[in-house]
């Protein structure tokens, strides 16, 4: 016999529309919580960085410094935003009991988690795009200023050929706006995505937003020590079994955030290898999948 209940209810295994509803809700929540105010702080900082004036340094050196500092600041803002914004989501929903009303609707817990993560990722991407635009505008402005000054100076000097002026202009341009810088911004996004999913994982068992933030920052910092651990602890303590074991456990369990810092090299002019960038994209996908799976394993059995 078919009951009324069975005929009425059809709930898909996974509903992208519910995920998107939670993601857009998350975006609205974070925007209205004024978390985007940090972009104003960033704009002020970028303006301040643009005014760095090292009298004894050359134009090329000054432009390079401005570029490194502004892109470095962008990277910090992106991962810090990823931690803070993500940490405000699940623990806060739990503290405010909003989670009860959401999970008492026909919403699967995986949909809730993916929705939250998606919302944060979209916001990180949007904020990075804004910060990147700000950086480029400032860099382009400074670059044109430096080039004009250099041409004026060289034209006034004796025995300077047009070819030499062109060479100097090219040197400045090499430190200015280049298409590779977009890949540096992408690198910051990949890093922030892994940071966000790690924070989601921590928040599934954390008791508060503050605990989530502190723990995530802690893991983020030590996640940069992979290279150091390999170089010092593993190679220089070859005889010490315990340290070797601990190092391996550390490497297996904690994400290698240092690997995601490849924006640094690109910003200082390294050549971009597209295959490597693609591989980093797939690696990020791997982290997102596995960390989300573990988050679900915790969240699925969590009692509220």
């Amino acid at each position: 016999m078919t009951t009324f209940t069975e005929t009425r209810i059809k709930i898909p295994m996974f509903s992208p529309s519910r995920v998107w509803t939670i993601a857009t809700g998350t975006m609205t929540q974070l925007v209205r919580m004024k978390t985007f105010y940090f972009l104003l702080v960033f704009a002020v900082l970028v303006a301040a960085i643009g005014n760095i004036d090292i009298k004894s340094a050359s134009s090329v050196s000054q432009l390079e410094t401005i570029k490194k500092v502004s892109f470095g600041t962008m990277d910090i803002f992106a991962w810090l935003y990823a931690i803070v914004a993500t940490a405000l989501l699940i623990p806060r929903d739990l503290e405010d009991r909003t989670l009860y009303t959401i999970l008492s609707k026909p919403v699967r817990r995986i949909e809730y988690l993916i929705g939250k993560l998606l919302g944060v990722l979209v916001l990180i991407a949007a904020s990075l795009a804004l910060m990147f635009t700000l950086c480029l505008l400032m860099l382009a402005y400074k670059q044109s200023g430096f080039i004009a000054d250099e041409i004026k100076m060289l034209q006034a000097a004796p025995n300077v050929t047009t070819a030499e002026i062109e060479e100097q202009v090219k040197l400045i341009q090499r430190q200015g706006v280049r298409p590779e810088l977009a890949v540096a911004a992408l690198a910051s996004f990949l890093k922030s995505s892994v940071v966000a999913v790690m924070t989601i994982l921590i928040s599934t068992f954390a008791s508060s937003s503050l605990f989530t933030i502190i723990t995530s920052i802690f893991f983020f910092l030590i996640g940069h020590a992979h290279g150091m651990m390999t170089d010092f602890w593993l190679h220089k303590t070859e005889g010490n079994l315990i340290i070797r074991m601990l190092t391996k456990v550390f490497k297996l369990l904690i994400p290698d955030f240092q690997l995601f810092s490849f924006s640094e090299g690109i910003v200082i002019g390294a050549e971009v290898v597209p295959r490597v960038v693609w591989s980093m994209g797939f690696l990020t996908g791997g982290y997102l999948f596995v960390f989300l799976l573990i988050s679900l394993m915790i969240f699925l059995y969590k009692e509220f």
């Binding site: 150091m228 170089d231 240092q258 690997l259 490849f262 390294a270 050549e271 971009v272 290898v273 591989s279």
Partner: peptide, 19 residues
């Protein structure tokens, strides 16, 4: 192993700064 290989490639290309 994937990360080690990527690290080597990025170090060679200068995308990643050595420790």
């Amino acid at each position: 192993p994937v990360e080690n290989s990527l690290r080597r490639k990025m170090n060679t290309a200068g995308m990643l700064l050595p420790t």
